[in-house]
Amino acid sequence: MRTMKPTRSLMLVLCPTLVLGFLYYSSGRLHLRTLGQKSQGDVDSLLFVGRVVASVYDKQGFLIKLDGKLPLELQYKYGNLSKGECKPGYSEAKMTSIYPKFVKPVPMFLEPNFKRLAKISSYPPPFGIKTQEKIIDVILAETKNYGLGPELDSLSCKRCIIIGNGGILSNKSLGSKIDEYDVVIRLNEAPVSGFEKDVGSKTTMRITYPEGAIQKPERYEKTSLFVFSAFKPLDFRWLRQMVFKEKLRGTEGFWKSVARSVPREPEDMRILNPYFIEEAAFRFIGLPYNNGLMGRGNIPTLGTVAITMALHNCDEVAVAGFGYDMSSPRAPLHYYEKLRMSAIKESWTHNILKEKDFLRKLVTAGVIQDLTNGI
């Protein structure tokens, strides 16, 4: 009997193997495309179905090869929209295409039934509400409102922009463009008055914490929401006194001076869902878990927390004023003061490099738009 040549034998073995490998890879990709309807456990198990599929994603679960091109299904979905028209579900669709574990929706602010959110119930501040349930109940009973307001909540498509405090905003004349967004989110005490040409005049909400809040009542906008983000249990005690217009009793435990009053009525005050801090820190950026407690280098900046919130609640997301150019030590650190870039010191709480890597993924993939090109 005539024996087959070694080359032919090898081909007979390799061909079925290659076909099976292709089918396996295609199957994995198909599963990952439909993860939006699956539970977190299903998602985690599917991400590791095989070396071929796993190698497509980094250790955080993001697609390794990123570009700004729309997947074919999104080209069909948004191809007929006019230029500048709000694209419903766009940020979610783009985010899911590069990060299949993305789960939407997640409420922007805490509401009376917040205890049903199992994820945040497992952690104390800043990653959750454990140990603070009673005081949150008291605060929410007084504020009575838990959304953006009737007009914005009723929009079928929302375009949101987060304004960072970076000096890169100076002399860009982006004010009128910023004011075109439906939701304008500002951070801490960054001023608007006197800087409207570059940062706009519209403020939908200002996200802050006790040490970052505006301390001079006259500097608050007249109509914006005061959105509180807690980083420690003491912060909730401070908020309670602000909501009930009580005299601030004791400031021990704060790392710098804090506002003694907030010129807002309770119905204009909100508590940011701490889910966004937990997700940004441990899932998106990959900061040290530290048993779910605040520790060295595991707190995301408020800007990244705001972006995370917007990804879950806005149809389109843009940013401006983000990014530190450490190669230019004489460049202005913030748009509103003369402090220079060289003033930045190594942060105990933040990991700026890892955070910037995450934000670059979002910009590169077109999940968010960076108007000042600083990320």
Rank of each mutant, 00 (worst) to 15 (best):
Y25V: 13
L32F: 01
L35T: 11
D44R: 12
V49P: 06
G50Y: 14
Y57D: 04
L63I: 02
Q75T: 15
G79T: 11
L81R: 14
C86T: 05
C86M: 04
P88D: 01
A93H: 12
P105F: 12
L117W: 08
A118M: 11
I120T: 04
G128S: 08
E133S: 12
E133P: 00
K134S: 15
I136Y: 00
T143K: 00
Y146S: 02
G149Q: 02
G149T: 03
P150K: 01
P150N: 03
L152Y: 00
G164E: 06
G167F: 12
I168S: 15
S170R: 14
N171G: 10
S176D: 12
Y181K: 05
E189P: 01
D198H: 00
S201T: 13
R206H: 03
R219A: 13
Y220L: 01
Y220V: 02
S224Y: 00
V227H: 04
L234D: 12
D235Y: 03
R249A: 15
G250K: 09
T251Y: 00
G253C: 04
E265H: 10
I271C: 02
I271L: 06
N273T: 02
I285S: 02
H312C: 14
V317Q: 07
G321H: 08
S327V: 12
Y335V: 03
L339C: 14
R340H: 10
S342Y: 07
N351P: 08
I352C: 08
F358H: 07
F358P: 09
L359A: 06
T372H: 10
G374R: 14
